[in-house]
């Protein structure tokens, strides 16, 4: 039941590691995020869930700031669940 464990990135607290599941967005944005290293199964660490402002994640060794709205469209799942097939 992987689907059920998906959550929006915006709900992940600071300091937690998650894995990208998918992105609810148009092709333009998806490809931009992909170019910045965010593709499915990428590990991401939430550096700051700076409510109400933007959101900073570490992806492939870079710091990427996302707008709130964007963070809500990025669906992630817990890294731990990923280990079991």
């Amino acid at each position: 039941m992987l689907e059920k464990t998906q959550m929006p990135l915006s709900s992940v607290p600071t300091g937690q590691k998650v894995r990208l599941a998918n992105i609810h967005a148009g092709n333009g944005l998806k490809s931009r995020l992909a170019a910045m290293g965010m593709v499915p199964n990428t590990e991401m660490l939430v550096i700051s869930n700076g409510s109400p402002g933007p959101f900073v994640v570490a992806v492939k060794g870079c710091r990427i700031a996302l707008g709130r709205g964007m963070a809500r469209k990025v669906m992630v799942r817990n890294t731990l669940r990923q280990e079991s097939p």
């Binding site: 333009g28 910045m36 870079c62 707008g67 964007m70």
Partner: peptide, 11 residues
């Protein structure tokens, strides 16, 4: 045009 949602690298 779509207002590009904010995505930016923090170098």
């Amino acid at each position: 045009g779509e207002t590009l949602p904010f995505v930016m690298e923090l170098p």
